[in-house]
Each structure stands twice: as structure tokens, then as C-alpha cells.
Design a protein around this nucleic acid. Structure first.
Lengths: 150, 150
DNA sequence: TATTGTTATACTCTATAACTATA
DNA sequence: TATAGTTATAGAGTATAACAATA
């Protein structure tokens, strides 16, 4: 894998690097989560729904940064797999509270373990300090934040 | 922009970080290149076509890592803007040699300047050594290569 | 009137299968 | 038979507009 036919001009572009690093991680993650019947995207939805107080679909969509129409399909998928269920909110009957089922919570726990292991393995190609620095740098670039707290 | 409503669980995921860093860069790049009537993707095609000997559509597709059917649309777009033209290869009349026009070459030059400036500005949120380290780390993760030469 | 969820629709990006013309 | 380019088509992923129920 030392001689790559592509001109450096291409593979040195920041856009190329970010796109393909993301692509490779997505594939790695998908392979690792497939045996559990889920993927990184669904896992993120489960994690958002499990964190803190129960959320309406629109609140969850906000947390995930997706449109509320997109959220419909995401919840549909979770319900089809019995990982979550819609519960009409008594306080405001326009809203659906989305609640994880026991099965959803179990899957979340197991899948989170797999995700952590997958991240570790994916970053194992880098020395540990470099991996930590990468994560910190990505945090800045991904959020546009200059602050280093948290 | 200091208080983000999203749980860290989400924004600390490697998948999230890579996706959104890429998203933010793509948007930044698109804004910067829009006045020239192009974008990062098209620019990469132009760069591949300009590098070295003239390429057939399939060769160019290979360099870019896209399907040959995808390449058809890319070349269509370039031809529609008079940035490149298909020339039937005399040696093998099944092949289209794709050649940049003068206009294509001029756009490439100007757009490459914009791209370099855009990358610099995007990474300006990081200290210079961190930016260099990020690029090196991404190179490893994007290509799956362990070698640090080049 | 405004909001939540929903549906219908569309747009981008990309790939697979099948066609054509050449080899 | 195989290859280069093309077309038709389809599948993600995502968004906008319009509608029903509720506020």
C-alpha cells in the first residue's frame, strides 16, 4: 500500500482527507455493529433518546441536528424493531414522547461497548497522543468552537 | 457558542466529529468557490484531468475513486461549462480522452488558489502545529496507510 | 393562528444492470 | 467475448410544502 497511483494533489486536499477518513470510519463502524442489527446512526438516535428526560420527536430531532420529517423515519425504524415506542404526550397531545423499550436499552448498552472498541481500534493506527490531539482538533473544527473546556 | 444543548455523548463520537468537520469544511469551501462557479468536487476533477498525460474517462474515474457512470455526469457538467471536452481516442475509439480547455485550465489555477486559502483559513482555528498534526493523522486514517513518507 | 407529527414529493449523490459501439 | 461509454433505474439521505390534529 506504499505506492498510490493518485496524485498527491488529490489525497492532500483537506476535503478529500475528511471525506475519506469519515467514509472509512463509517464502514468500519457499520461492520462492527452489523451483528447487532444496527449502525452508528441508529445508535446515536438511541443514545439521544436514552439521555435525560423523555424527548418529543422534535426535541430529539433538534438534538440530532436533523429535520423533524427525517425524525419520523428514524422513529419508524426503531418502532419496527421494537427498540422504541411512541407515546402520545398527555400534557400536549400533539407531541409524541419517544421512549426506549427494554430491548432498546439493552441494544444501546451492547452497541455502545462495540462503538467504543471500534473507535479505539480505528485510532490504533495512530500513537495515543496523536489520537487524542486529533479528537481535540476535530472537536474545534466540527463545532466551530474555539473553547477547549469540557 | 459556548453552551451546546447536545449531550457530549453525541458530539464526542468519532463518527459525529468526522462527519461534521467534513460538513463544515464542505460548506466553507462551497462558499469560497461559488463566485468562481465551481465547487471542491469539480475542482478535484479538473485537477486530476490536468495532472500528467491526458486520461480516458475511466482512468479519471479510477483516480477519483468514483464509478465510471458517475464520471459521465461529471464530464457532462464540465463540457456544459466549456471547461473540458471529450476527444475520441484515435488509438482506441471506445475511449474518450478528456482534455481541459483553456478556460478549464484558467479556472483550475484561480480555484486552486482559493482552495489553498480556504484550507488555511479553515485550519486557522487551530495552532499551526496542531493543524499539521491533524493533516498527518487524517492522511493515515483516510488511506489506511501506516507509512509516513511522501 | 401556531405547532407537532405526517405524507408526498423532490433533489443530491451514488451505484447496478443493461445497451451500443468498438475491440 | 470483453471493454468504454452511456442510459435507465434505484436506493440512501435529506429537505421543502402541504395537510390533519391539537393548542
Amino acid at each position: 500500500m506504499t505506492s498510490d497511483a493518485r496524485p498527491e494533489q488529490l489525497t492532500d486536499r483537506l476535503g478529500y482527507l475528511l471525506k475519506h477518513a469519515h467514509l472509512r470510519y463509517t464502514e468500519t463502524s457499520a461492520r462492527a455493529l452489523a451483528p447487532l442489527g444496527t449502525d452508528g446512526r441508529e445508535l446515536a438516535v438511541l443514545a439521544v433518546l436514552a439521555a435525560g428526560a423523555p424527548l418529543s420527536q422534535q426535541e430529539a430531532a433538534g438534538r440530532l441536528g436533523v429535520d423533524r420529517t427525517t425524525m419520523v423515519a428514524l422513529v419508524d425504524a426503531l418502532e419496527a424493531k421494537s427498540l422504541a415506542e411512541r407515546v402520545r404526550s398527555p400534557a400536549d397531545r400533539r407531541k409524541n414522547t419517544v421512549r426506549l423499550t427494554d430491548r432498546g436499552r439493552q441494544l444501546l448498552d451492547r452497541a455502545e461497548e462495540v462503538r467504543l472498541r471500534t473507535e479505539r481500534e480505528f485510532l490504533a493506527a495512530l500513537p495515543a497522543p496523536d489520537a487524542a490531539a486529533l479528537r481535540a482538533a476535530l472537536r474545534v473544527l466540527a463545532t466551530g468552537a474555539d473553547d477547549r473546556d469540557s
